[in-house]
Design a protein around this nucleic acid. Structure first.
Lengths: 148, 148
DNA sequence: ATCATACATTTGTATATACAAATATTGTAA
DNA sequence: TTACAATATTTGTATATACAAATGTATGAT
C-alpha cells in the first residue's frame, strides 16, 4: 500500500504526516474487514467487545460502568448498546438488588453460542489481515505501538 | 500503553489478536487527539481532508466523485459533507457547465485561511502524537504498515 | 428520435457515536 | 430527618456514517 498513490498526490508528504495518514489508511482497511466479518451476526465491533467482556466475567454479572471501563473504544452510550444486545437475546439485564442504581448484565447461552461463531470468523480475519507479518515483525509492531 | 492493563484482563492475549486490539487502542488515542484539534474549527476529520484536497487542486475545481476517490476514508455521502463546508463558507459549489451531472467544488479564501490555521494545529498534534519516535522508528513503522 | 444503459449526485432511512442534561438511588454530614 | 453531593444509568439531541433507492443527465446503438 503506497500512501501517495492511494490518496493520489504527487507532493512528497512529511514523514510525520505521512505516518498519521498511513495509520488511518490501515485503520480503514482493518475496519472494513472486521465490519464485514461481524455483519452476518448483526453486531457492531463494540457490541462484539461487550459480549467478549461478559464472557470473561465467567457468570459474574457486569454493570454498565464496568463494561464501559473495559471497552476498547469508550463510548458514552453503553445503555443503548446493551439494549441492542438484549433485543437479539444475547444478554440479560437486571437491576442490582444490593444497589438499585446499578444494572447487572450477563451473557445468555444464545449469546455464548453466537460469540463462539464470531470468534472463529474474527480469528480468520485477524490471520488474514496479518498474513504478511512474521512473529518477529508483529512483536516489533507492538513495541512501536507502545510508543504512542 | 500496556494492552492487558488498558482492557483490564489477566489472560494472555494471542499475538495476532493483541496486535489488532493494540492497533485499535492507538487509533482511539489518535482520533481523540485529532478530533480535539479540529473541534474549535467545527470541522470533522473528513471535512478537513476535503479542504486539503481542494487546496491541492490549486484553483481547479473538483467534483464529488474526485473528492470521494481521494479521501482517506471513503464515505458514501460526499454531498452532505460538502454541504456542511458550504454552510461554513469554506467552499463554493456550482454545476459543471460542460456536464450538468457533475458539480464543481472549490475552496474559498475564507476556507483557505481557516485551513492554514487548522494545518498549524494539526501539525502540532502530529508532532505530539509521534513525539516518542525517532525518524528511524517512523520509517520502520511506515514499512510495517506497508505489509497490511 | 427513441430507448436502454451508464454516470454523477441526491435523498431516505437506519444505525452509530458524542455530548450534555435529566433522573433515580445511595451515602453522609449537620 | 433533611439537605447535599456522589454515583449509576437513562434520555434527548445533534451529528456522523453506511447502504440502498431515486433523480437527473449524458451517451451510444438502433
Amino acid at each position: 500500500m503506497n500512501v501517495e498513490q492511494v490518496i493520489k498526490t504527487k507532493r512528497e508528504i512529511p514523514l510525520k504526516s505521512r505516518t498519521v495518514i498511513h495509520f488511518m489508511l490501515v485503520n480503514n482497511k482493518i475496519n472494513e474487514r472486521i465490519t464485514a466479518v461481524l455483519k452476518p451476526f448483526e453486531v457492531s465491533l463494540q457490541q462484539f467487545n461487550v459480549l467478549r467482556i461478559l464472557r470473561g466475567q465467567e457468570g459474574k454479572p457486569a454493570n454498565l460502568s464496568t463494561l464501559n471501563e473495559r471497552m476498547v473504544t469508550k463510548m458514552s452510550n453503553t445503555t443503548r448498546l446493551v439494549y441492542k444486545l438484549l433485543l437479539k437475546g444475547y444478554v440479560d439485564r437486571a437491576t442490582c438488588p444490593s444497589n438499585r442504581r446499578k444494572v447487572e448484565i450477563t451473557i445468555t447461552e444464545h449469546g455464548k453460542n453466537a460469540l463462539k461463531k464470531m470468534d472463529v470468523a474474527m480469528q480468520n480475519a485477524e490471520d488474514d489481515i496479518l498474513k504478511n507479518f512474521s512473529d518477529e515483525e508483529l512483536k516489533e509492531l507492538n513495541n512501536l505501538f507502545n510508543k504512542f
